[in-house]
Simulated assay, not measured.
Amino acid sequence: MSKVCEITGKKAITGNNVSHSKRRTKRKFNVNVQNRKFYWVEQQQWIKLTVSAAGLRLINRIGLDAALKKAAADGNLKEIKTIVK
């Protein structure tokens, strides 16, 4: 699983782990992503998305259809995995 949000495009960044003696070693700041299923009313189907916490808030704020259109316009959404029932 790639740790990239399909809605916002957030991904892991690198930085320094700083010890008490100020020694610096490289570390990674991962994104808080989860695999979630959403019901897409406009298409009458369930879809799977890997979204971050910020992506979930965006979907709650503007709606799933608008968030998917914004993600596709920004180039963050590669493909939508549909769930066939």
Rank of each mutant, 00 (worst) to 15 (best):
I13G: 12
N76M: 02
I13M: 12
I7E: 00
L58N: 11
I59C: 02
A54N: 11
A53D: 15
S19K: 05
T50V: 13
Q45K: 05
N32I: 04
I83N: 07
Q34F: 07
I62N: 06
R61K: 15
K81L: 14
D65T: 15
K48L: 08
F38Y: 13
I13L: 14
V33L: 05
K69L: 11
K10Y: 02
E79W: 04
A54L: 08
C5G: 06
Y39H: 05
Q43T: 06
V31A: 00
C5K: 08
V41C: 01
I59W: 03
K81I: 15
V41F: 02
N16A: 09
D74S: 05
Q45D: 01
K11T: 08
K81H: 11
Q44E: 07
V84W: 07
T25P: 02
Q34V: 15
L64Q: 04
Q34R: 14
K28Y: 03
N35M: 14
A73K: 15
I13V: 13
G63S: 09
A72Y: 06
V41Y: 03
A66H: 11
K37R: 13
S21Q: 13
T8S: 06
G15P: 07
L77H: 06
K26Q: 08
K37D: 15
S21L: 13
K69W: 06
R36I: 08
L77Y: 06
V18Y: 04
L77F: 04
A72K: 09
S21T: 12
N35R: 15
L58W: 07
T25F: 00
N17Y: 02
Q43L: 04
G15W: 00
D65A: 12
Y39A: 00
T14M: 04
K85Y: 10
E42L: 10
R36C: 10
V4C: 04
K37Q: 15
V84L: 14
L64T: 03
S2N: 13
F38V: 01
V31K: 03
